[in-house]
């Protein structure tokens, strides 16, 4: 397979079946799909339709029961635990609904975490983490622990962590699920910026159609199948919306350091 393929993710008849006692749960019933490099995809669908299961498999956290998954041209099904860990470290950044930051650990150290598991030059760790935090607008809160940060700020730390290793793919499962609407738009603005400026591919799971329209493509799941898969015609621009934000209540004041 050619290296300069425009396809980053290719799934073929992806199936995932959970066996619970003598009951079988078909979370994915054969999903064949491709996601191009540099695209911004939103995944929607009712609860239990298999969105998270799909994300876990393309995130190399889980393996399909049947079917094939190629990431960057590499067949993932043949790899072992440690090889998968290495791929996650090098090629994928994760953003979770509940942020998943380490408590009692500074923002900077949280961002540095993936670097612990690289073989990269250690002397640059600090600078890289600082740069990542600055790129999400948190350059002034590097020493704060998660408990000292707002939800939106915590999610930004998590995004900084996800991009510290320069991944080709960022996977975010309901990244705005725990945030208010303005903060959600701020987070989407960051994703759009990463997508446009760094060309990172981004896949976001969301229940909110509003949020989905910041992506350039929306895939809807239902009962483990892809129901619809469409390009977004009227794409929203988060940065632009923030400039003209009309809300006076609950406006988040960024403290100036």
């Amino acid at each position: 397979m050619a290296q300069q393929d425009s396809v980053l993710i290719r799934t073929e008849h992806l199936q995932k079946t959970y066996v619970m006692g003598d009951q079988k749960v078909h979370a994915l019933r054969g999903v064949s799909n491709t996601i191009d490099r540099g695209s911004f995809v939103a995944i929607m669908g009712p609860s239990g339709s298999g969105k998270s299961t799909f994300m876990n498999i393309i995130g190399c956290l889980d393996k399909p029961t049947a079917g094939k998954y190629f990431l960057d041209g590499v067949d993932i099904s043949g790899l072992n635990r440690d090889q998968l860990a290495e791929i996650r470290n090098k090629k994928i950044g994760f953003v979770f609904q509940q942020f998943n930051l380490l408590a009692r650990t500074s923002a900077l150290e949280n961002v540095e975490l993936p670097l612990l598991y690289t073989t990269d030059d250690k002397s640059k760790f600090r600078e890289r983490a600082m740069a990542a935090l600055e790129s999400v607008g948190l350059g002034h809160r590097i020493d704060n622990h998660p408990s000292q940060l707002s939800g939106g700020q915590q999610q930004r730390v998590a995004i900084a962590r996800s991009l510290i290793c320069n991944p080709q793919l960022i996977l975010a499962d309901e990244p705005t699920g725990a945030l208010d609407s303005k903060t959600s738009v701020e987070i989407m603005a960051i994703f759009q910026k990463l997508n446009q400026e760094k060309g990172m591919s981004i896949v976001v799971v969301t229940h909110e159609p509003d949020i989905a329209h910041y992506a350039d493509r929306i895939i809807v799941f239902k009962d483990g199948h892809v129901l619809t898969d469409e390009r977004v015609t009227q794409r929203r621009n988060a940065a632009h919306e923030l400039e003209n934000w009309q809300e006076t209540q609950f406006e988040e004041q960024e403290p100036v350091a």
Partner: peptide, 16 residues
């Protein structure tokens, strides 16, 4: 457990 899961997600291997 959650911390371990996170570390694994960001690339920690078994030996780590």
């Amino acid at each position: 457990t959650k911390e371990i899961g996170l570390r694994q997600a960001v690339g920690a291997k078994t030996a780590d």
